[in-house]
């Protein structure tokens, strides 16, 4: 069951990763290999088995609703590739 080029394009679009035409061949081949391997799961009978999301049956602890002093935006934003006036900058967002 090989992935079709339009399927690779769909995945790349969802994941927001540019995939060039040259990359597409090898990528498809390797993704196919991985997906073929994981399809072994289909042979396992899992009828009535509750999915397991976390290995331990732990439950969420709740945090008291208190405000802590935050780090300054200058500190937290110092890795920003582009910022001005306390804002992160990106190419114009269209709605």
């Amino acid at each position: 069951m090989a992935l079709q080029p339009d399927e690779i394009a769909r995945l790349a679009r969802l994941a927001h990763i540019q995939v060039t035409a040259e990359e597409c061949g090898t990528l498809t081949e390797r993704l196919d290999a991985v997906l073929d391997m994981v399809r072994q799961l289909q042979a396992c009978d899992t009828a009535g088995v509750e999915p397991l999301a976390h290995p331990l049956d732990a439950v969420q602890e709740l945090r008291p609703d208190a405000v802590a002093d935050a780090e300054s935006p200058e500190t937290l934003m110092r890795n920003a590739p582009a910022a001005a006036a306390g804002l992160f900058l990106v190419p114009r967002v269209l709605d």
Partner: peptide
């Protein structure tokens, strides 16, 4: 399916 197998 994988989450179910995880439980097994």
């Amino acid at each position: 399916k994988a989450q179910q197998v995880r439980r097994l």
